[in-house]
Design a protein around this nucleic acid. Structure first.
Length: 859
RNA sequence: GCCGAAGUGGCGGAAUUGGUAGACGCGCUAGGUUCAGGGUCUAGUGGGCGUACGCCUGUCCGGGUUCAAAUCCCGGCUUCGGCACCA
């Protein structure tokens, strides 16, 4: 009987589906386990990188089920994603129907891999009901001031009529049409995530099972800095300039003031002065240049004097005000006090425009001299030239000066964050409509709850020419005001799709619950938080931060009990492969390459570096090809065995062969023994065994121990699989027992059953088939994960390493329970050891129980 | 520039608390299989020296701590990721 993966896989996939094998039940008495992948639904065809994501989740789900957990494992969610419009047009379906269609489309391919999803849940996120609740949450937030509208400066491409994210701007031009990007003031909706900034930051230290680097990224993104807001009064005129600084200890060294070029204050200050025209030109130039400059490596510091002065609040000194290109309008107050002696940027600026330098923090032991300085001194030191604060260490001065400023009404301690409120407005068709109506009389009026959901119209033209199709759709936006019934206009912006992905995990818990608020508190309390979330590092900041914010907000609305959405997080690595390209045809798919030549033009193919698999680079491996060639089990095994999940995986064709070979080995040894072990029970209990059988049985139990802990504690499937490989090797090594040797065959049977059960989460189809052949009865999915017997797994002979000065010189086989005395006695008789001891004396002996004996010797 | 992670054979990777470096797999070499090929089985496989017992050396580089370092500390190099004129 040959291993025929295709036949087996089709058979079991059909059975699992018919019997709804993987459905979670809410009334189960078992402990719950909620497992979710971080929206990995691809908007096109799935490639092997996706398969890796799903496989990791699937293995965990199958393992946890065998461990007796009630597992909720719905499929992740990316069907609303960005490329949906294009992909929908390509596939000839209306974008509004895209999500549902896409999920159906993907299921075929996903089921072929044997993934054990609870397939009936995720459709809940493509129903109008999903919009209804999302819009309800919006209205609640609007009521509480957590959703608000404000004008903001955006990158705007006039050609595409779209707002561009910073990363969509290439050298100041639109990534799609290469037209120069404009700065435009646009009214946009925001969610006030900054209200939760302290809680989001604090909980970063209470998520022990999240990867360190994700938390670090989130902390950096939030970017908290503690400092002072200080007012610098204007000289010879009323008013003041507020600055934010974290270095209030250097305030006496502030010799000039910098204002962001685009700051409104700039034009106010120069109004009516002779320099006004020049300054205006400067500001215009910087506004445009700024974006361009960001992409170049060296930023030339530029500024222009505004013919205005302000007063240093501590020294009273008269300091000039400049507009500068390197000050950010949207951080802090948009104005910076410049301390050239202790800030490198200010130093460069002062040198360029010949501005005065005053040292206020002196280097201990080696005093600074303004004239001789070649760079700013940014370290700690002792205050000088600072009046009453002279002699204070700078670290203490931070506090003292902050208190002084506060008590004298010159400033106050403040905290600045890098994190901005979350702009959710999108000028796209695809997304949840924002439920607001604008009326000339009543202003912005929320859509009444009973009118929800505001649905997307189906009769729009998707022209692909940019701009929101909704803004061109009169029937959609021409409405009457809910308050006064006069003609009014509906908001045509839709929500960022990140809003939808910020609570889908909660909707999955109660997909059919359509009473207010669309989330069944009872079931939410049972399943949430997600016990294990798995996904790519690319969502480390935005999606995960937004989901955390949303969870806290819904908690404060009383919808959810959890403080955090995801208890444990695994960020798995990417699958990489080298790119191939040809001078004429650009990037090539693997099947477009024959040997080392392009199959279109026969030119030699250029092999590029290893990069993340993506459609645009065409360095993808099609899982269908793998399944056709080797079967889904081999594809799964390869993804798991080659690298631990959090590492990037470099694709290799040869590795796949190895996985296939191993599965064949498992298949052959099982079939080979099948007849002999039929009717024989697997070995149980403690009955003593000798020789090879004892060794095999020990290996069996050691394997259970190893595989269990590798999956349980670390998700290190690669080492778990290698442990099973060792057990299979041991089975092959065992001399074939006689047919009537029932004891030997029972030990063999136990080993074979163990191999099959241990492999079940990884290669479910083949193991089901072998299990059915071997045991019949209950399918493997209903078998519980075995425990190992520590006594049987324990070795009875151990190797003690004999070292001299830490170098291994010999080894000693001793009984596991040998005591220190007897080991030392035997070591003294060891020839190899004694050869190294000639002419030396032992000054110390270090004995590590069960491990080694180290002799420290001198000449 | 700042923050973070990583660096181990020809390759992917093991080594869970400082205690046998290189598990397992790929590749390669040799041999068996009535041996065309493939498959499969067995053995070998970090480097150097040696007929051999064996010896030396070895986890990016340089120091250090320790009886003992891939692992801890200091300095440097390289790669990757994040943030970036953040006051």
């Amino acid at each position: 009987m040959k291993y025929n993966p295709h036949e087996i896989e089709e058979k079991w996939q059909r059975r699992w589906e018919e019997e709804k094998t993987f459905k979670a039940s809410e009334d189960s008495q078992r402990e719950k386990y909620y497992l979710l992948e971080m929206f990995p639904y691809p908007s096109g065809k799935i490639h092997i990188g996706h398969v890796r994501n799903y496989t990791i989740g699937d293995v965990v789900a199958r393992y946890k089920r065998m461990k007796g957990f009630n597992v909720l494992h719905p499929m992740g969610w990316d069907a609303f994603g960005m490329p949906a419009e294009n992909a929908a047009i390509e596939r000839g379906i209306h974008p509004a129907l895209w999500t549902r269609d896409n999920i159906a489309h993907m299921r075929g391919q996903l089921k072929r891999m044997g993934f054990s999803y609870d397939w009936d849940r995720e459709l809940a996120t493509c129903e109008p009901e999903y919009y209804r609740w999302e819009q309800l949450f919006f209205l609640w937030m609007y009521e509480k001031g957590l959703a608000y509208k404000k004008g903001s400066l955006v990158n705007w491409c006039a050609q595409c009529r779209t707002v561009l994210a910073n990363e969509q701007v290439e050298a100041g031009c639109c990534w799609r049409c290469s037209r120069e990007v404009e700065q435009k003031f646009l009214d946009q909706w925001f969610y006030r995530i900054t209200d939760y900034v302290e809680e989001l930051l604090a909980w970063c230290d209470q998520l022990p099972d999240w990867p360190e680097r994700v938390l670090t990224m989130q902390k950096n993104w939030i970017g908290k800095s503690i400092g002072c807001e200080v007012a610098f009064p204007l000289f010879d005129q009323p008013g003041e300039i507020k600055v934010f600084t974290t270095r209030q200890d250097t305030i006496c060294g502030a010799t000039f003031m910098l204002v962001a070029a685009e700051h409104p204050l700039v034009l106010e200050l120069v109004a009516g002065k002779s320099c006004a025209g020049e300054v205006r030109n400067f500001a215009e130039r910087i506004k445009k240049q700024d974006r361009l400059l960001r992409t170049s490596d060296s930023y030339e510091k530029e500024g222009i004097f505004l013919e205005a002065y302000c007063k240093n609040p501590l020294t009273g000194g008269k300091i000039p005000i400049f507009a500068a290109n390197f000050v950010l309008a949207d951080y802090g107050t948009g104005c910076v006090m410049a301390v050239p002696t202790h800030d490198q940027r200010d130093f460069d600026f002062a040198r360029k425009y010949s501005l005065p330098l005053i040292v206020v923090i002196d280097r201990p032991g080696e005093p600074l001299d303004e004239a001789a300085m070649t760079e700013a001194y940014t370290e700690e030191g002792i205050l000088v030239n600072s009046g009453p604060f002279n002699g204070l260490p700078s670290t203490e001065a931070l506090e003292v000066i902050a208190d002084y400023l506060a008590s004298n009404g010159l400033g106050r301690k403040t905290i600045q964050y890098r994190l901005r409120d979350w702009g959710i407005s999108r000028q796209r068709y695809w997304g949840t409509p924002i439920p607001i109506i604008y009326c000339d009389r009543c202003g912005a009026v929320p859509v009444p709850q009973q009118d929800l959901p505001v649905e997307l119209p189906l009769d729009v033209d998707i022209t692909g020419e940019g701009g929101s199709p909704l803004a061109r759709h009169r029937a959609f936006f021409e409405v009457s005001c809910p308050k006064c019934a006069k003609p009014a206009r509906r908001e045509t912006d839709t929500m960022d799709t990140f809003v939808e992905s910020s609570w889908y995990f909660a909707r999955f818990c109660s997909p059919d619950f359509n009473d207010i608020p669309g989330l069944d508190r009872k079931r939410i309390d049972y399943w949430m938080p997600v016990d294990q979330y798995i996904g790519g590092i690319e969502h480390a900041i935005l999606h995960l931060l937004y989901s955390r914010f949303y969870t806290k907000m819904l908690r404060d609305f009383g919808v959810m009990g959890a403080d955090e959405p995801f208890r444990r997080l695994l960020t798995q690595g990417m699958v990489c492969k080298e790119t191939m390209s040809c001078p004429t045809h650009g990037y090539l798919f693997p099947e477009e390459v024959a040997g080392d030549a392009c199959s279109h033009c026969q030119e030699t193919v250029i092999i590029g570096k290893n990069e993340k698999m993506s459609k645009s680079l065409k360095n993808v491996v099609d899982p269908d090809y793998l399944i056709d060639q080797y079967g889904a089990d081999t594809a799964r095994l390869f993804c798991l065995f080659t690298a631990p999940p959090e590492k990037d995986l470099e694709w290799s064709d040869q590795g796949v062969e190895g996985s296939y070979r191993f599965l064949n080995r498992v298949w052959r040894i099982t079939i080979d023994y099948l007849e002999d072990v039929t009717g024989i029970e697997a070995h149980r209990g403690q009955a003593p065994l000798e020789g090879d059988l004892r060794v095999l049985r020990r290996k069996t139990h050691q394997t259970i121990r190893k595989v269990t802990s590798d999956i349980e504690e670390r998700f290190h499937f690669n080492t778990a699989i290698s442990a099973v490989m060792e057990l299979v090797n041991a089975l092959y090594q065992l001399p074939r027992p006689a047919k009537e040797d029932r004891i030997a065959l029972s030990v063999v049977r136990e080993a074979i059953e163990t191999v099959i059960i241990m492999m079940a989460p990884f290669v479910p189809h083949m193991t089901e088939e072998l299990w059915a052949a071997l045991c019949g009865g209950k399918p493997l999915t209903d078998i519980s994960w075995p425990d190992y017997d520590p006594d049987i797994a324990a070795v009875d002979e151990i190797t003690i390493v004999l070292q001299i000065n830490g170098k291994v010189r010999s080894r000693l086989e001793v009984p596991a329970d040998a005591d220190e005395e007897s080991i030392k006695k035997r070591a003294a008789l060891d020839d190899r050891l004694n050869r190294h001891l000639e002419g030396k004396r032992v000054v110390k002996q270090i004995y590590v129980p069960g491990k080694l004996l180290n002799l420290v010797v001198r000449d």
